[in-house]
Design a protein around this nucleic acid. Structure first.
Lengths: 209, 209
DNA sequence: AAGTGTGAAGCTATTCACAGCC
DNA sequence: GGCTGTGAATAGCTTCACACTT
């Protein structure tokens, strides 16, 4: 599934380079996978290519955006105005893909009331109201582990639909909420595992899973 | 593989709670998986449990640390002293697991010469020397996409063994280098995909893959 | 009784190979 | 001739079920 997102990125690069049409082989190289994989993945959602030619870049881009649910902008709340929150708030790929951070929350009274690029940092007790008023669909959890479950409960109660969780803890949510975890120390440890267990035959790129 | 890392975290939590012994069932709950999965995963590396009792927390922790290559501290270089770099530099789970950031690099002359908690921000042309002198094993790439391949080439030439890549681009490295990609916008798009394709039966936690 | 370790079964994902279209 | 779409084959991963140990 997340390969689709890599294909979309590859197509954006190709478009910037002025390429109009692309073969599965070339797209696979950009996404770090194989031509057969690209074709299988895409054919799962429809027939987008032309035999003998390849895929037309702009239409396939539009298709992928639609499949990935990026056809319309998404309203996002950021929880946690610390360093990770700051990094995510300014992260260009988010806004390029249509994610709009419309609300920021923090528990630190020092931070509450400040503004980041026109968005006020609010106290957590305004969460439910703000989520509803601003029609927030997605929350990004950039807070310490011990606060994560509490915030997840409030978000679920406020009717959020998805959570991108950067907190290094497993959160429990009702079935109505989709969670995706991004765990940076797990990723770093996957790397040391690969270093430890394959110091000789270490194969490149993405093998650290 | 990255479940091992989640088990380790669960064991650390359990130790803080004073628990001495744990069943696969309970550990699975913390890691968001099943008891059978925990037993399979662990049995792949040895027999760590006692039938009828479960796993002894501290020894299993030590075993997992060793399997994950965390037995000794790892010397890390941070490339990119921007917002993402700042977030990662201060990220407590990294230092808790024995990752030591011993060098920081950036291309911005404004930033070069500054210090973050005693570590100087250096220009990129000092990279090879510093990596060797400081015996850096791992690099964290927290830089824009267009600079990533260039930095990866320099790191590979300097003899780095692993790269944790936060840049939203696929980098090419020689076989001697292991790369692990962390792509935040891919993760966010995996979430919107799940929202789009399963608005009704959305199952919780980790389903967004 | 409680709970691991593990073969076997079941399932999902990837790769192969090639017919069919441009 | 080049390249997609896709069944078939393969590989990898997860769940099941239960013998066996404490």
């Amino acid at each position: 599934v997340r390969r689709l997102s890599l294909y979309l990125r590859g197509l954006e690069e190709l478009e910037r380079e002025g390429v109009r049409t692309v073969a599965s082989e070339a797209l696979a190289a950009r996404a770090g996978t194989t031509a057969a994989q690209v074709r299988k993945d895409l054919s799962l959602f429809g027939s987008f290519g032309k035999r003998g030619l390849g895929y037309a870049v702009p239409p396939l881009q539009a298709q992928l955006r639609s499949i990935l649910g990026l056809a319309r902008p998404r309203r996002v709340a950021l929880l946690g105005a610390g360093r990770i929150g700051a990094a995510l708030f300014e992260y260009p790929p988010f806004r390029e893909r249509g994610f709009r951070i419309v609300a920021i929350f923090d528990e630190d009274p020092e931070k509450i009331g400040r503004r980041w690029g026109g968005v006020a940092i609010r106290p957590v007790d305004e969460l439910a109201d703000t989520v509803r008023r601003e029609e927030v669909e997605i929350a990004v959890l950039a807070i310490p582990a011990q606060a994560a479950q509490r915030m997840a409960d409030m978000l679920a109660a406020a009717g959020i639909r998805g959570i991108l969780n950067f907190a290094p803890v497993q959160i429990q949510v009702p079935e109505t909420v989709v969670v995706n975890d991004v765990d940076m120390s797990v990723e770093l440890e996957a790397l040391t595992f690969a270093l430890e267990s394959a110091p000789a035959d270490a194969r490149a790129s993405g093998t650290a899973g």
